[in-house]
Design a protein around this nucleic acid. Structure first.
Length: 207
DNA sequence: TCGATGATTGAG
DNA sequence: TCAATCATCGAA
């Protein structure tokens, strides 16, 4: 299975965010003696975050303990805890000359392991399984201990597999922040958006 | 230390 | 529209 390699992530974060759409996020769940279970989904919504030029980025004020992955090797999982409830998954990415950056994975179209995702998500409807960064964190049982994992490693229990570029993509302003509103760095795959797989709470407020 | 806050969500 | 909920970070 081909996948985006390390150099894929060594480019501008907004370009990487666009090109992650259509690829597959895979999570392997190991439980005792049972054989490992595959959970996966097509990436249908992403957001790019930059360095000290991007007021909305966690890296805006420089290196801290939390955002260290954004400053390190590209292609690694940056996982943070937010609002006392949710784990969100990013992949570190940046051109060589930029200090830090990451792509937030905001939504998936679930493909494999829906039954297990529904258990983690307390039996919600399919369209609500992974249609938000906190939701997919819960559906895939993403833990803080996975921070820094190599997303290009096909044997890892969380990684990216190569997929098909979606036919249509739209860029909007990023959600959940009031900063750097000039940057249209949220990207969604249009066909899956119409089916309701992306965050739609803000659908009426285009940007 | 300490207080403010947040790349969200589910319920009302 | 609103509260839940707590790790993180900058200021004191």
């Amino acid at each position: 299975m081909i996948c985006p390699d390390r150099s894929f992530y060594n480019r501008s974060t907004d370009l990487v965010a666009v090109e992650l759409l259509g690829n597959k996020l895979v999570r392997i769940i190991s439980h005792g003696q049972e054989k490992p279970k595959r959970l996966s989904g097509i990436i249908v919504e992403t957001e790019a975050y930059g360095s000290n030029e991007d007021g909305a980025s966690h890296a805006f004020r420089g290196l801290t303990l939390r955002n260290a992955v954004m400053f390190g090797e590209v292609g690694r999982a940056y996982i943070y805890f937010i609002y006392g409830n949710h784990f969100c998954l990013n992949i570190s990415a940046k051109p060589l000359e930029i200090e830090a950056g990451a792509i937030l994975i905001r939504a998936l179209q679930p493909v494999e392991g829906l039954k297990i995702m529904k258990i983690f998500r307390k039996n919600c409807q399919e369209l609500s399984l992974t249609s938000g960064p906190g939701k997919l964190g819960q559906a895939l049982n993403i833990q803080k201990s996975m921070n820094g994992k190599d997303m290009t490693d096909q044997k890892s229990n969380i990684h990216i597999e190569f997929g098909v570029k979606p036919p249509g993509i739209m860029a909007t302003k990023r959600i959940g922040t009031s900063k750097a509103l000039d940057k249209k760095w949220r990207f969604i795959s249009l066909d899956t958006s119409e089916k309701g797989y992306v965050t739609n709470r803000f659908a009426s407020r285009r940007g």
